[in-house]
Design a protein around this nucleic acid. Sequence first.
DNA 1: CGGGAACAGTCAGTGCGCTGACTATTCCCC
DNA 2: GGGGAATAGTCAGCGCACTGACTGTTCCCG
Lengths: 153, 153
Amino acid sequence: MAAVDLTSHPGHLARRLQQAHHLLWNTMVSEEITSSQFAVLNTLVAEPGLDQRTVGERVGLDRSTIAEVISRLGRRGLLDKVRDPRDGRRFLLRLTDDGVRTHRRLTVRTARMNQVFLAPLSAEEQAQLLGLIQRVADAAEGLRDPAEPLITR
Amino acid sequence: MAAVDLTSHPGHLARRLQQAHHLLWNTMVSEEITSSQFAVLNTLVAEPGLDQRTVGERVGLDRSTIAEVISRLGRRGLLDKVRDPRDGRRFLLRLTDDGVRTHRRLTVRTARMNQVFLAPLSAEEQAQLLGLIQRVADAAEGLRDPAEPLITR
DNA sequence: CGGGAACAGTCAGTGCGCTGACTATTCCCC
DNA sequence: GGGGAATAGTCAGCGCACTGACTGTTCCCG
């Protein structure tokens, strides 16, 4: 009977948090555009002409995943993809007018959704939560590269 | 130029948190058993003989997803699945010896991993983080059922 | 007792997310 | 200039996660 209390496991809570978010996103923001796709649109609004890899880096997706997300957005006509004439390996990405419009429309709804999502917390607690998550995530991402493995056998 | 700062978006942070966790899990706990699979094992250690749906409820997975997770665990011989003789709709689940052993082995590593994961925070902050996430997740889950839709058009 | 609602599980379809192996292009240094 | 390392992207394979439609079983009420 060595079972553990899952509510003390950050991984489990992180998954539940994301599920909760996904649920709210679907009902309050969009059923077509996902949260990740919105993040890509948002990045390209700020920095048009980025290449695929850099967009992935900005939103925190590896190159395989970002490729799929982008191809889906391309298929829907929300962005264009052209070979970089200066570097034949890269694709340069740019939103279409439709992409820009979609981004603008969703931005409003996203803000509203975030409000509802965080409503159970006071303004102070909201800031705390975001800050704490960020610190943990940043630290873990910093552990990616180091040569020495993490496994403490 | 209406781009938004993604670091203020809880959904984006939740995804990053989960990714970070996934990374640490893979390197410090197991590459074969995922965090969700462990949650299922853990639930069945505490309550052997549960049916599929209830397990899904305990760990926060819908019935489609839990079915796949369980079938994978079954294929690896970590649990057994038998029809409930008293209710032909249900499958009753029970860990095999191998399943129990696996759970025990991973429990230790999981604790170590959680420590590393939360290391950037003080003990107090760790408790805060877990509590805040839980409140937000609980509240959002409470919004599932209500008859009236959430869409504020 | 009989029939419809409720319920457990499955299946098909979509999308995210990762790793590891592969191709094509460019870069850099000898 | 030529060749090997680095880089951008693709592809195959695995696994999670959700919805919506479907099958089969049980439950409950008239």
